[in-house]
Design a binder for these strands. Structure first.
Lengths: 192, 192, 192, 192
DNA sequence: AATGAATGAGCGTTCATTCAT
DNA sequence: GATGAATGAACGCTCATTCAT
């Protein structure tokens, strides 16, 4: 029973991921997911706790992992006192790794989870990125600097997610990541 | 009684705006809008052409005006050959004006119009901003430059909309607009 | 007040007649009637007792008059012992007269009063016509003769109403009435 | 479970047929049909495409078959040059057959399909019957003959449908059909 | 008395979820 | 455990009728 379950489980996850990515959580259709997965609706409910439960299963790992990685980077940074260039390089490689594993899930979180319990994902990640760079960008931030830093963090992320959306080859993605990082975080103080 | 109709009309618009902003178009509930407006459902239909018609009434002006203003800026730029600093100043003041009038509406357009006829708003505006700045940022763009320019246009807009979301006092908003413009478009070539 | 009322009253009746004739009672729209009559909806309700009451006002005279006339014909026939030809002539002229006054109303009764209290109109009139002719057509009717007579009465009426629907000039209508009468009631026994 | 689906399907069809026959298409109530069929509303939509789709399922075969049969009769007539008596006999038997299969459906088509896509049924059938008999009734028709022929075709049909409405035993129905045919189409020229 | 805005029950339809087999 | 038919609450919308002005 368990080995069979794994297969069905994955087919449902695949179909759900595709459906939620295409139509969002609200617009997503459980019957369509079941059909795409080749599973009767009733059975889908044996594997997942309904529409919301399936979303959980698809999206929760990415929802917890991405913040975790950025937090780990923060502690690494505190320990090593990275230069901004070093931080950029590490962040780029870490993001790449996450997206290799959770690319679609992240896009669902970013774009398709309005009115779900995940709709704070953007805020959470932006706040973490902000913390990561704030003291490097604005060592003694004014009020306006603080707002700016927040805006930059969000915009940086939205650019990163835009790249992700483009589904480019891995190397191109990597190059774009680095250019974007440079664009956002290089010589920021001179641009005040 | 014209007075009264105007009042009801506005109450419905207000309630609709709030509902769509909170729950999006799909998630928005007509009965809830009617209740919030203090109007029975049926009466709402005397004022607006259903759920979609109400969205039209709320959002169409912003949907047409914002692109129009950017296009006008493009022709002004062609005529006067603005420096990037001049262009930034004019754009900032124009955006401020639009947002004074259509702030919430723009946010609905940006975030809450998936699966409506307005879901191309972000693309349209991004493309126009891109055209506005492309030749100033990358006079002879490479392929990667082109992608970058597109990313920057989108990110710039998302920052602008983030500011809008913050609902800051007008002067602060203005200052943030200018800082953001500077952040995005100043000395870009040196950041390649 | 009373002289004004007459005018408004008639405009509503006209509009209602047209609407019910076009769309039937169920399909008829009170707001459309009010608009066509140049009267606010609310006022229509001061003149008539709603959608059904307006139908009453339009249709009741015809609903009572047409049977009355045929009944009168029956008693005349009993008194004078008309030949079938004479009866046909009198009936034709009487019907013409009724239709001059209640043409549209009869058509509403015939075609557009399904599910109203008038939906027995066809039955009632057919039964009366049947009585009028039965003893002349089948002096000693068998069971099948009785059914036939009923069918003929109904069919005769439907032909009469068809002519009415055509809205031909009065003389043509009259000629058609006579031909139809002749077609239905002449030498019937030889057609058994 | 195919068996079960068939059963539910038929229960809905039965309930729909009864409801449409009683209240017409417009007046028919989907919830009432579902209740009568012992099915929740939602399930009805798994079987039929809504109110209109259910009407289609009930009525379409009759709508296409009855005209088809009359057309086939027309070509048979052209080939064999039937006498009017022969034509009458064939028509009677064909109609009987259709009504055995589609009796109620035809009555819905005749009386209860105003404002649907089937509301031309009476016209279509009348025109076909007219074509079938016109040259036999009035080989060289005058203008008035033409109108008369049309009236007769319609009245004949309404008599046929009246018989159908009576729900008589099959043999009686057959006898009535023949008498009606004889009544309408025998020695017509002598009744001018 | 006149006006037309307000009212809300009722409709056809959808779809996440449950349940009988 | 697997299946997909069954379930019914909830939605957007209509329109005959009422009511405030």
């Amino acid at each position: 029973m368990q080995y069979k379950k794994k297969l069905v489980n994955d087919r449902i996850l695949d179909a759900g991921r595709a459906e939620y990515l295409k139509n969002g959580f609200r617009g997503g259709n459980i019957a369509a997911i079941a059909t795409a997965a080749g599973v009767p609706v009733g059975n889908l409910y044996r594997y997942f706790d309904g529409k919301a439960g399936l979303l959980d299963a698809i999206v929760k790992p990415a929802y917890t992992e991405l913040p975790k990685i950025i937090r780990k980077l923060s502690t690494m940074d505190e320990e090593n006192n990275f230069s901004i260039e070093e931080l950029m390089a590490v962040l780029a490689s870490q993001l790449l790794q996450i997206f290799d594993e959770y690319g679609k899930e992240v896009l669902i979180l970013v774009d398709k989870c309005a009115t779900t319990r995940y709709d704070d994902f953007n805020e959470i990640v932006a706040k973490l990125v902000l913390e990561l760079f704030l003291n490097k960008l604005y060592p003694e931030p004014s009020a306006v600097d603080g707002v700016m830093a927040e805006l930059i963090a969000k915009a940086f992320l939205s650019s990163i997610f835009d790249i992700l959306r483009k589904n480019l080859p891995r190397e191109t993605t990597e190059e774009m990541f680095l250019r974007v990082l440079k664009y956002y975080f290089f010589n920021v103080q001179e641009r005040k």
